[in-house]
Design a protein around this nucleic acid. Sequence first.
DNA 1: ATGAAAGCGCTAACAT
DNA 2: ATGTTAGCGCTTTCAT
Lengths: 337, 337
Amino acid sequence: MPTVHDVAKRAGVAPITVSRVINNSGYISEATRERVKATIKEIGYVPNTLARGLRSKRTNTLGLIVTDITNPYFTLMARGVEDVAGDSNYTVIYCNTDESETKEEKYANILAQRQVEGVLLVPAGGNDRTIKFLEANGISVVILDRRVSGVEKDFVCSDSKNGANLLVKLLIKLGHERIAIITGPKNVSTSTDRVAGYRRALKESGYGKNELIYYGAFNQQSGYELTQQAMNHTPRPTAILGANNFIAIGITKALHDLSVDVPGDVSVVGFDDLPESMLVRPFLTVARQPAYDMGRSATELLLKRISGDLPEDCQEVIFQTEIVERESVGPRKSSSL
Amino acid sequence: MPTVHDVAKRAGVAPITVSRVINNSGYISEATRERVKATIKEIGYVPNTLARGLRSKRTNTLGLIVTDITNPYFTLMARGVEDVAGDSNYTVIYCNTDESETKEEKYANILAQRQVEGVLLVPAGGNDRTIKFLEANGISVVILDRRVSGVEKDFVCSDSKNGANLLVKLLIKLGHERIAIITGPKNVSTSTDRVAGYRRALKESGYGKNELIYYGAFNQQSGYELTQQAMNHTPRPTAILGANNFIAIGITKALHDLSVDVPGDVSVVGFDDLPESMLVRPFLTVARQPAYDMGRSATELLLKRISGDLPEDCQEVIFQTEIVERESVGPRKSSSL
DNA sequence: ATGAAAGCGCTAACAT
DNA sequence: ATGTTAGCGCTTTCAT
């Protein structure tokens, strides 16, 4: 493969001049610039980013660590990240932790080895080791989606508490009094925040005693199993809140298998959303989080942090959720009492 | 950040010894190995992959270029790629072309600059410029999912022709005679292969005159619009084949909006599949492609090609599709004639 | 407006 | 079993 030297020799200039053309830096006469550009094209020169990064300490690379890349919520977020990064000539390395803290630390290490300039992190657990490690290696970090307690970092999320509160209030307005929440793990803030919003809504409506909380995992299977548990509770809930899209789908499936009609017998509401392109029939009532914009916003923050365009203290961006009412909710039937 | 030199000095050895420990290469006494390892941990040394790659010419990096990362078919494929790559200590850089040949070339260039050792390519169009460019830069390429005419390269796909053939035969067995196919662009092999399978099934069943073919794009909107066209045709089709998952969803939506019952009035079959975790109710009858295994297989091929463990001539792996029968098909009703 | 020299952090090649 | 030397391809720094 040709190098700057080859280009330089052929164009009759010094390597540094070629470098200046590539980077649009320093003074260069229009004539030499054109000549060098032509030579680059002629011999098909492609700059080596390894050498560039090694010398300049700038790799134009970001890392994105998410917990589940098969979830469209995170895919959409990733698109937001990529769009902003691409506009600034940054490449993104995606890492998928499957909610495992071990994998998270492994990937953080790989990203450090690759000299990424910044990392967007959706934390897999409650621990701050990954963040501390990245910090120690001089890598800027923006936390996405989930809060890690005791960590002061730039942070972008949606308002889980308020979203859950609104969903529950909606159910209460429809006459529901026994509402269950099926959520994710206890050490994940989106999981506990949604429970907090749920509890507040119940308390404010005078149903504080009716709490029915099931912790599990953010996937369909967990939603399915916990629904079976919830429906065994006496008295049965007349409405269920699933704390993310996969859980909500698991709930709907379990109810179907139990021959419970939705929303006739039980109303179901969820979080996140699936893109319309994947749905035969939009069905679930959800608190929709602006995943794409969250990805964009977090990346803008990160790039500013990297370039030093940000004040010292941490920025926090909280997006509001949008309640999308669809077919999965209905009034409580008196027969269900 | 500490370097090999810092580790070496502190451990009382030469830098190359540290290098040998990191790479598990050459002879080293157990004692020094332990001492070096301890020192690495002690001062938190993280090897710099830029310097490693620059010197050794091995970057342990692959590129994956797909046309639509929001499609679960490709997400699943990407997981297969990542799993195999990860097992061999390779990192994958994902690139999303949105079916644009311009973006494809842009990303190929970025990957070349980053000195990736190989690229897995789902071609956006019919042209071979990207492939030629990567080849010219000494980068191994495996083509995924779609054939590019006139190109001799390792190739992994599923049997589109046979899949479409089986789907149409299934419909014919149910009594359907007027079957439409709604497919993607004319310059994409999966699109035309599925049409070919469709045509063969019709011909072999004596309905060769009933061809009803609609070319468009591999997305929901195109599926929706072309369904409206198809249903305006006289006589109306009694069954429709959508050439990928998004098209099939568009078809179902359009039929719903036209108050056409599925499968009562019109049967619908599709390609690919959505993961169960995303479906409230599995519904569509589809030819399922083993996306995850295709990703795995392609990556295994690529890694072997990179390490020279493969014979000169091109390998071709064709996976069979699995017909999954569900609710969206039914017998042709005589009333629909 | 252009160039020469040096070195980023690592490992290949060649000692010993 | 360990070390010395050199150089990967680029850009920083300091000339001119």
